[in-house]
Amino acid sequence: MKKIAVADKKVCVACGVCLKTCTKEAITIFRGCYAVVDDAKCVGCGLCAKACPAGCIAVAERGE
């Protein structure tokens, strides 16, 4: 897996659209504050980035 979703916790509104979209259950909302991506589960498909209404998720190369 070369890519991974990265959520900007400063912009995230913790609405949970990404968790619903993720087919790998790789996203959780940390204590109602912001989305956290589990890098072991994320396959970098970008579904969450497309769905995020706040536009706070980007798909990046792993290890960057």
């Binding site: 509104v13 913790a14 609405c15 659209v17 204590r31 769905a51």
Partner: peptide, 27 residues
């Protein structure tokens, strides 16, 4: 105009509950 649930990005209830959560989590 924008994406589904674009409302959520500025929903007052969402902002308020996130604020409470952030205070509780000391963020």
């Amino acid at each position: 105009l924008f994406k589904p649930r674009a409302w959520c990005s500025f929903c007052p209830m969402g902002t308020m509950t996130q604020m409470i959560c952030k205070i509780k989590a000391k963020e």
